[in-house]
């Protein structure tokens, strides 16, 4: 479902995937699955928002609020024939463009945020908020049982490791430690206020020209800060250092 709404008086675009609907044209799309039609419709809502505010300045542009409760992208034959990869990619590029053009994009995980569907609907936001797990929120790529089946690793061992290793375990708390979620909002009652607060914070950053503390890049910094992803920055720093040593040969 996409549309405009007012949040504390300010016009926002809301993009909420419908966790109940069934798409009669595409049988693998049900219970919040994001299929081709859904992803393109979401992308259109983003482009329309960009278009509508193209003459407004940064900070004045309407924020986009993504309400996330999705178990996955549509895994069907027709989807593969027509290219489901384009649909989910299109929505991500649209959101990234909106963000870079100065729209604040906030995602709120209120249910399932799983794998590729979370990548397309959520992970391109400036900031991501999530309800704690007692509200049924799930963030992961795959349940441990499936990871165990595919990787042929012992489930007991995985469960034991998942307590200390957030990189493959399921859960909002682990994503928080990896820098994948900016804030865990204690209850649904606080969500409206939290979304508005984050929009303000993001707008302030954008007005100041700071584009490193929001979006996926910002979450990379958070990942290091919270100790969940510390190798990532070391790898990139090393590459930069090595490139500097040979740059004269390539930059003419």
């Amino acid at each position: 479902m996409v549309g405009s709404a007012a949040l504390f008086g300010r016009t926002v675009t809301v993009i909420a995937n419908d966790a109940q609907a069934v798409n009669p044209r595409f049988p693998v799309v049900y219970f919040g699955v994001i299929g081709m039609e859904e992803a393109y419709k979401m992308a259109c809502a983003v482009y329309e928002s960009i278009e509508a505010d193209k003459d407004k300045s940064v900070g004045e542009k309407r924020p986009l609020v993504l309400i996330v409760d999705t178990p996955g992208n549509a895994p069907g034959k027709v989807e593969e024939i027509f290219g489901m990869n384009k649909a989910t990619g299109a929505y991500q590029l649209a959101l990234a463009e909106a963000r870079k053009r100065g729209h604040a994009v906030v995602a709120a995980v209120i249910g399932r945020a799983i794998s590729g569907a979370f990548l397309c609907h959520g992970l391109q936001a400036d900031h991501i908020l999530a309800l704690p797990k007692q509200y049924g929120t799930i963030i992961h790529v795959m349940p441990l049982s499936s990871i165990s089946r595919i990787t042929k690793m012992d489930i007991e061992r995985l469960e034991e490791l998942s307590v200390k290793s957030p990189v493959f375990a399921s859960g909002v708390d682990f994503f928080y430690r990896l820098g994948g979620v900016e804030e865990i909002v204690p209850s649904p009652a606080g969500l409206r206020e939290a979304v508005a607060r984050h929009i303000e914070e993001i707008d302030a950053r954008k007005r100041a020209g700071d584009d490193t503390h929001t979006g996926p890049w910002g979450r990379g910094l958070l990942g290091a800060e919270r100790g969940g992803r510390v190798t990532r920055p070391a790898v990139m720093a090393l590459m930069e250092e090595e490139f500097d040593a040979v740059a004269a040969r390539y930059l003419k």
């Binding site: 991500q92 794998s115 979370f118 990548l119 992970l123 391109q124 963030i139 992961h140 790529v141 795959m142 990871i147 595919i150 990787t151 690793m153 957030p166 990189v167 493959f168 375990a169 682990f174 994503f175 990896l178 820098g179 994948g180 996926p216 979450r219 990379g220 990942g223 969940g228 992803r229 990532r232």
Partner: peptide
């Protein structure tokens, strides 16, 4: 899958 969450964030 062995480091699924970090892999997911890298994709974004």
């Amino acid at each position: 899958l062995h480091e699924a969450n970090a892999g997911l964030l890298a994709h974004a």
